[in-house]
Structures are given as C-alpha cells and as structure tokens.
Deep mutational scan, measured.
Amino acid sequence: MQRVNMIMAESPGLITICLLGYLLSAECTVFLDHENANKILNRPKRYNSGKLEEFVQGNLERECMEEKCSFEEAREVFENTERTTEFWKQYVDGDQCESNPCLNGGSCKDDINSYECWCPFGFEGKNCELDVTCNIKNGRCEQFCKNSADNKVVCSCTEGYRLAENQKSCEPAVPFPCGRVSVSQTSKLTRAETVFPDVDYVNSTEAETILDNITQSTQSFNDFTRVVGGEDAKPGQFPWQVVLNGKVDAFCGGSIVNEKWIVTAAHCVETGVKITVVAGEHNIEETEHTEQKRNVIRIIPHHNYNAAINKYNHDIALLELDEPLVLNSYVTPICIADKEYTNIFLKFGSGYVSGWGRVFHKGRSALVLQYLRVPLVDRATCLRSTKFTIYNNMFCAGFHEGGRDSCQGDSGGPHVTEVEGTSFLTGIISWGEECAMKGKYGIYTKVSRYVNWIKEKTKLT
C-alpha cells in the first residue's frame, strides 16, 4: 500500500490518463441519441435557420407576430419608411378606419389613436360632414345658397324668414311668412316636400332668348283662358290664391305678392273693366268669414305684352289694390325667389296649380277651390304637342294621358313649387288646347323671366 501511494504521488498524470480511459469505455446513459432527441424537440425550422439574422431580410411573422416588435424591426421587413409607417399605425392600436367614419364618399386613412378623412370636392370637416359648395344638395341650405369668396357655403332665406341657429334652416321672422300653410287642420295635408338634388348652379339658368321682337298675326285659340281631375282644397291650404270678379264672377285667378299687390295673367284683364279681388276665398257660393274683398285701382301688364300681336306672350300683369290686405292664416303671400332659384325650383319637376275653373272641358265651374299636382314636361315634348308657338318664356306641365289639367277660369292662378315646406311661385296658368285632352298640356308663363320686374313694381313704400 505504501508503494502504491508513492507511485500516485510521483505520477499524477498517469492516474488522470487511467481515469479518462475508464470513462470513455463506459456506456453513456444520461444523453439520448440524435434521433430520439429530435422526437422530443420537434420544432419547425425557421426561415433563416442556421444563418445569422443580421444578414437576412426581415420576416413579418418572425419579427412582429411571434413577439412584439419595434418600429426598427418592422422597418427591416418593409425596407421602406412609408410602408412601415402605414403598417405601424394599425399594428400599434388597430384600424381606426374600420367603422368607416368618413361621410359623403370620403376616404379614410388610419393613424395612431386617430384617423384622417380625405374629402371629395365640396366637403370638409373631420368626417367630411361639412358642405362647402352650393353645387351639392344646395349646400344643405333649406332655401338659398351662395358661395363666399373663400368658396364656403353661405345660406340665406327669402323675405319674412331668418336663418336658424344651425345656419342652414329657415324659420319665420314674421307672423305670416310667405308660402307657408298655417291653418292647423290643413298642415297635415301639406304636399310632399321637395329635397334639393345635386345641381350645376353655374349652368342652372337656361341660355334662352326671349323672342321679344317676333311679330306674329293673332292666333285663334280655343278655350285658351284655361282644375280638371283635381281635388277639393281645404280652407287655408292655398292662402296665396285669390279669385278675380268682373263682368262675371271667378273669371280668373291670381296670387298675393304682398298686402297691396296681386300677380295674374295679362290676358285676364281689360282696361276700363272694374275688377274686384277676393282673398281668403274657399267656396265661392258661401260666406265663410275668411274672405277679404278689395278693388283694383291700377293694372300693370308687362311692358312687352301686346294682345294685338299675341294674347299669351309675356302673359303676366300686376294688380294694385285700393287697401292693403290683412295677412292671416287664410290670406298669405306666395314666396318669389330670384331668377336663378325660381328656375331651379321649376326644374324640380312638379308643381301645384289651383283655381275655381271648370271641372271638365266646357263644363261647370268649381264651387270649392280645386288643386292638382302636375309634372313638368320637357321642352321637346311640349313643342311636338301643339302647332302653336311655345315661346321661351312659357313652359308645359300636365299629363300625356289627359284627364287632369287646369281649365277655363283658372287662368292667372299660381303654379307653385314647394321647397322644404315653403311654396314659391314658378308659373302662372296661361293657356292650353281644350282641357285635359290626351297628348295636350297646360301652358304656363315662366315666372323666372319676370321676377325682377315683379319685385321692382310691387315694392311697398
């Protein structure tokens, strides 16, 4: 034993070699072989497995989906700052455009905790909710729209109204504003409101030439003092309507412009014939205590009207009353817009006519005020429907199939267009061939041609 100890002390290297040989010859039971080890760690190889990531292109799944990435790591994937920024906006807080917040056709661009709407022409605001041009839906104005110097929408209202708090709607500024039905039992019968379409306001006024200088022999019209197929109006439903009495009662109609003036057809009036105007009328054979009678003290036909040349060209006249009318729910003026808007309103496509005229061709006159909704007829169809001249200051309205029309005794009465609950004068009943005849239409004086003249002559002093 002493000898062994001496050998170990003198030859430590020998001992180490012996131990190493023993270990190498022993069977290893701690580690699995290569094949079995792979069965336990069965993990798919990654895209760049075996390579240094710093030297390969980034992978979106590896960089940002398996674990949260930084902007720089995302930049490695896209290799483009702009594309990385677009991805980053949604990656950080989701897609803010998912709810489609942009209105009126706006395009949404996502941002971090926010979004941006790219608005089409005519709109602005956070969600493109603000109209900035009158060309689109009248700028959301209830009545009139004008573009300011910086191309912003400025709404306005006709006389007797003021802008509401929203700067879009119009509200009454006087007790009985024009064009409004205020009798409670008839307010439910107000005709369907007309909503502004998209309009090209630059070209809204037709490029028409008034044929002022045409000389033409007097034409022989049949029954051209021209509501057939209409309905009984309720008291106060058309408070701007008046009836004219002269040699015979209810020979023509008219509309209240203001307390002192009536507008009617020029062919209705004769110099030297006494005319009485009755406002607030409903049943011409009954006294309903809503009527107001006034005498006409002055007749002003349009300066281009000449019955000797043509009885229905420039067929418009103004009547001055001896005493002002007292405005109330049964006696209310009709609204008159400017030339541009009167023309736009007419193009809405349908209007209402009213009167006490004959209820059928050569038949009896109506006792109760009649009204009828009539569609506008395109000019080409209008011209083809008659052998008589249709001037540019006239328009056609009615039904091709016949059966409904204005008729004798309705002449001078109103053709009105309702705009968001307020009625505007767009025409004056003038003439036609018979009444409600198939293929024939009622012919009306186009008020847009005469609004400046009306307003100039009827100013209240």
Results as ranks from 00 to 15, higher is better:
325 L>Q: 00
275 I>E: 02
68 K>P: 08
443 I>A: 05
129 E>N: 04
97 C>V: 00
214 I>L: 10
296 V>M: 02
17 I>Y: 12
144 F>T: 01
115 Y>H: 04
150 D>E: 10
294 R>W: 01
17 I>K: 02
3 R>M: 13
78 F>C: 04
91 Y>E: 15
244 L>R: 01
369 L>N: 09
377 V>T: 05
163 L>D: 01
227 V>M: 12
26 A>V: 12
441 Y>D: 01
393 N>L: 02
32 L>G: 15
438 K>E: 14
138 N>M: 07
250 A>V: 10
255 S>M: 04
259 E>Y: 04
88 W>D: 12
433 E>T: 08
317 A>T: 03
55 F>N: 15
155 C>Y: 00
302 H>G: 02
50 G>Y: 10
386 T>D: 04
430 S>N: 11
180 R>S: 05
113 N>K: 11
138 N>R: 08
318 L>D: 00
347 K>Y: 07
34 H>I: 10
166 N>M: 02
54 E>V: 04
179 G>M: 00
445 T>G: 02
272 G>F: 06
162 R>Q: 08
126 K>T: 10
390 I>W: 08
273 V>G: 10
362 K>A: 12
126 K>F: 09
307 A>S: 09
160 G>N: 06
424 F>V: 01
332 T>A: 11
265 A>C: 03
339 K>D: 07
183 V>W: 10
185 Q>F: 15
197 P>W: 07
399 F>W: 13
162 R>P: 01
398 G>E: 06
215 T>I: 08
201 Y>E: 11
215 T>Y: 08
96 Q>L: 10
239 P>R: 00
88 W>F: 14
93 D>R: 08
161 Y>C: 01
315 D>W: 01
282 H>C: 06
360 F>N: 15
21 G>C: 07
273 V>S: 09
26 A>F: 05
406 S>C: 08
274 K>D: 15
413 G>H: 11
172 P>A: 11
160 G>W: 02
187 S>M: 12
158 T>W: 02
14 L>R: 03
255 S>G: 06
322 D>N: 07
378 D>W: 03
327 L>V: 07
270 E>M: 08
332 T>F: 03
445 T>N: 04
327 L>D: 01
455 K>F: 05
202 V>T: 14
272 G>L: 05
362 K>S: 11
192 A>K: 12
105 G>A: 04
198 D>H: 12
313 N>M: 08
157 C>S: 00
125 G>E: 00
213 N>M: 08
42 N>P: 13
446 K>T: 03
117 C>M: 00
128 C>M: 00
357 G>N: 08
390 I>R: 08
161 Y>T: 01
330 Y>G: 03
374 V>P: 05
72 E>G: 05
358 R>E: 10
